[in-house]
Write a protein that binds this DNA or RNA. Structure first.
Length: 833
DNA sequence: GCGGGCTTGTTACC
DNA sequence: ACCGGTAACAAGCCCGC
């Protein structure tokens, strides 16, 4: 039978002791089908140099005898072949060892301790990844497939087990040409879900309701009956019936994706535990399996056949670092990307909910699913894109950290280079890598505080990645021994001179392009493509996509320096960073030589004054610098700015790095590093600072700002500032008990814990400083919870929030803000200075 | 018990 | 633990006086 097929979810099972995949996806009629397939299972034994043919024949005999016995299977060697391969860019002879079960390859590997074998590789990819690499049935791509129906005795248990109507055996497949399908666009069926409970712990509270939201599908299922006019509310008898009804709707809808927000850690584990407590089955998987929760920090929840997606995870890795929102709560994220918020509803235990309040609770519950669904629709193209680029199933691609994404991408593309994959480092190696200490990083130009006019800013496009590509830097292209001399060589690509342990050395890399640098090119190009897309059509989504590939592209260097990476290389990381410093300083020099004054620079950027030159003259300069850059390296114009402000460090006499504010001719303001952008400062200090920065940038002087600050200070002293503007938000970065220094946010967290609130790693602790500490001088003794009664501590907010946030800004204009206010309000000030 | 230097911890920039 | 180095800064900690 010939069909079209798009693979979505991958799972595997053992049959007759052998691995099989079952792939869930859709066909051209949009029917959900399951494909069963197998693939050759093998690993590699790389032989030492100069092993003779005779020795190989003997070795093969020996290898064939290896087997692994586990409690439910015996894994044997099926055949052994000899191949010429590349390993880390070097030619090697390797045995391709075929075995019956992938899960035992690592045990097989440890039994191959013959002295002719140098290295054992390719046993630690995971079966799904191995399968995709081997058969090239990539996720989310349309294929033309040849299938056969299962015969009577084939996989009998599967047929009975699967909810999917069609289960087919795959014979062959090839990528479908775009033309052959009217619409190759994959229109997924998806449901977002959200639960409401009486507790954060399933042991302590029931699930009250579950909402589901999809295209033309709205449902709130609940056993808590209150008057409502919402026709989507479905009442059921009890919690058991609630779970069963939820299951029924999911089964009927047949979604490809079941989507939640933080559902990996909360919703699905909660449901699973409650089902267990209620002694009912919850066979949501298409193979009637329960959700599989991989415990860990953070946990992941997989449902066989239905891709369970947790948007929180994806937002966190792909977008978070470029987002405006200060938390990644559904409310903040929805508000940033959708311009919509959750329905306000104060959490109450169900026993405290009045009859007429249930209706709001239903609507609240539905809205959460609604928001999650809308976010899903916005993010799906990006998740699909990641999945396709990295060639990992969307379940993984949407959860993987950046190093995993880069690594997945590399592993899935090694075959083009005839490369044997590197293995994962073990714990000992990871530890040793970490102990080597830090690598010297980028260069940051020390600015001189001041308000500058007419500025230009250049920055390098994906600097680290373009260095890797242009200079062919990687573990595999490094010439060993690596601690080579500083003599320049025409045979190799040299790194800049690097000082290591007091010695100046240069690393050499081959001129022949290595697979790692070559592979980065695609990610690099994608980044360019999406940036262009954003520039042509700027909106929050094109921006997010552009940034998602920006982070992916920018992670290549971090990956190389990451102790857990297969292709880790300290030498490569050092070389990349040496180039980063060199290029930045060279660029600074070139701009200086052109007659511009350098104001600032950080890693890959330079800010300079125009010195009366026209923008087109500056663009010519940029062109000239670019003409001198190698490979894909590219310096671009970040922008022209009408004014820019740099300040001194607090209590210091020199300019502060990583803190500046600039404004374009059109009034677009760019603020970096200032308290304005730091969430651990109270809103009052941040908003005030933001306001005066803008005023100064717009007007070119401090006059208005001064008036403004005086007014705010007056209000603060008169207690006219509302407390919510004084809340300080700080995140717990580790378990409460592990803190050596007990800072205010830790005290506040302890308080919250005592009140029975769930606090732990990642919780954002909200507190304010009040007049409660008695004689204590410690700030922590005055930390009050957000909703705790008390008066705010005027002195603290003046001295520790307001003043610091504006002090250095006024210093630029020679104004001592303390004195100014002091002169005006002599008597009050004595109290706080 | 006070002050200064050091350490711990968080958040930002790139 | 899950990309890394550079930097600013607050608050606590610690030690000498």
């Amino acid at each position: 039978m010939t069909k079209k097929f798009i693979p979505i979810d991958y799972d595997y099972f053992d049959y007759d002791g052998k691995n099989h995949v079952k792939i869930f996806g859709r066909d051209e009629t949009n029917e959900q089908i399951c494909i069963i397939d197998t693939c050759p299972i093998f690993m590699w034994a790389i032989l030492k140099e100069n092993v003779t043919k005779k020795q190989i024949i003997e070795l093969i005999k020996e290898v064939k005898e290896v087997y692994v016995q586990t409690k439910d299977r015996t894994t044997t060697i099926e055949k052994v072949e000899t191949h010429e391969k590349n390993y880390s860019g070097k030619k090697v002879v390797a045995l391709k060892i075929f075995a019956t079960n992938y899960k035992d390859l690592s045990s097989v590997a440890s039994k191959l301790d013959n002295e002719l074998i140098d290295k054992r590789r390719g046993y630690d990819l995971g079966f799904t990844t191995h399968y995709i690499i081997e058969k090239k049935l990539n996720p989310l791509v349309w294929y033309d497939i040849e299938t056969t129906e299962l015969e009577e005795d084939d996989y009998d248990f599967i047929k009975n087990e699967l909810k999917t109507e069609k289960v087919l055996k795959l014979n062959s497949h090839r990528p479908s040409t775009v033309d052959s399908i009217p619409s190759t666009d994959f229109t997924s069926r998806s449901l977002a879900y959200d639960i409401e409970t009486d507790s954060l712990k399933p042991e302590l509270g029931a699930i009250l309701m579950i909402s589901l939201y999809g295209k033309d599908f709205k449902k709130v299922i609940t056993w808590k009956k209150g008057p409502t006019t919402q026709d989507y509310v479905e009442f059921v008898e009890d919690e058991k019936a609630l779970l069963k009804t939820f299951l029924k709707h999911v089964e009927e809808y047949k979604p490809d994706f079941l989507v939640g927000y933080n559902s990996d850690a909360f919703d699905m584990p909660y449901i699973k535990t409650r089902a267990k407590m209620l002694k009912i089955k919850f066979p949501i998987g298409l193979d009637k399996s329960e959700p599989k929760i991989r415990k860990g920090i953070p946990p992941t929840t997989k449902i066989t056949g239905i891709t369970h997606l947790d948007l929180y995870k994806f937002v966190k890795t792909a977008y978070a670092q470029y987002m405006q929102s200060e938390t990644l709560s559904l409310n903040d994220v929805a508000s940033e990307f959708l311009g919509e918020k959750k329905i306000p509803f104060v959490f109450k235990h169900s026993k405290d909910i009045k009859e007429n309040e249930w209706d709001l609770y239903y609507r609240y519950n539905l809205k959460d699913s609604d928001l999650a669904f809308q976010l899903f629709e916005k993010f799906l193209p990006d998740m699909i894109e990641f999945s396709k680029v990295v060639k990992e199933p969307i379940f993984e691609a949407s959860r993987n950290g950046l190093s995993k994404q880069i690594e997945g991408y590399i592993l899935h593309n090694l075959e083009k280079f005839n490369e044997i994959p590197e293995r994962k480092p073990n714990q000992k190696e990871t530890g040793a890598r970490m102990q080597q200490g830090q690598t010297q990083g980028a260069f940051v130009f020390k600015p001189t505080a001041g308000l500058y006019e007419d500025l230009g800013m250049f920055d390098f496009t994906s600097m680290h990645t373009s260095i890797i590509i242009s200079h062919n830097i990687s573990k595999g292209t490094l010439i060993e021994p690596s601690t080579v001399n500083s003599q320049p060589s025409t045979d190799y690509n040299d790194s800049p001179e690097i000082k290591i342990d007091g010695k100046n050395i240069k690393y050499h890399f081959t001129k022949e392009p290595g697979f790692f640098p070559l592979l980065l090119q695609e990610i690099f190009d994608k980044r360019k493509q999406f940036k262009k897309e954003y520039n042509e059509n700027p909106n929050p989504m094109t921006k997010a996509r552009s940034n998602a590939f920006k982070v992916l592209s920018a992670s290549a260097h971090g990956y190389i320096a990451f102790s857990g990476a297969r292709y880790y290389s300290k030498e490569a990381a050092e070389s990349i960073l040496a180039f980063v410093r060199q290029y930045n300083q060279e660029t600074i020099q070139k701009i200086k030589d052109a007659g511009q004054k350098i104001i600032y620079g950080d890693t890959d950027s330079v800010v300079f004054t125009l010195e009366g030159k026209s923008e087109s003259t500056i663009k010519e300069l940029l062109k000239k610098i670019n003409s001198e850059l190698p490979g894909v390296m590219n310096l671009e114009l970040e922008g022209f700015f009408k004014r820019g402000l740099w300040v001194n460090t607090r209590g210091g006499e020199t300019g502060a790095k990583k803190k500046y504010a600039m404004i374009t001719e059109n009034g677009i303001v760019k603020i970096r590093g200032f308290e304005t952008v730091r969430r651990d400062w109270c809103e009052l200090a941040r908003k005030t600072q933001d306001h005066i920065l803008r005023l100064i940038l717009k007007q070119g002087n401090e006059k208005e700002s001064l008036k403004y600050v005086k007014e705010i200070i007056k209000q603060l002293k008169e207690r006219k500032i509302s407390k919510d503007k004084l809340i300080i938000r700080t995140q717990l970065k580790k378990p409460i008990t592990e803190y050596k220094a007990i800072s205010p946010h830790v005290t506040a967290a302890i308080k919250m814990q005592k009140q029975g609130m769930a606090v732990g790693i990642g919780s954002l602790i909200e507190y304010y400083i009040g007049n409660t500490g008695g004689s204590s001088k410690l700030v922590r003794d005055k930390a009050l919870l957000k909703n705790e009664d008390g008066e705010y501590d005027i002195t603290y907010y003046l001295k520790k929030q307001m003043l610091p946030s504006v002090d250095q800004i006024f210093q630029v204009f020679g104004i001592d803000i303390k004195e100014v206010i002091d002169g005006q309000k002599q008597e009050n000030l004595k109290k706080w200075f």
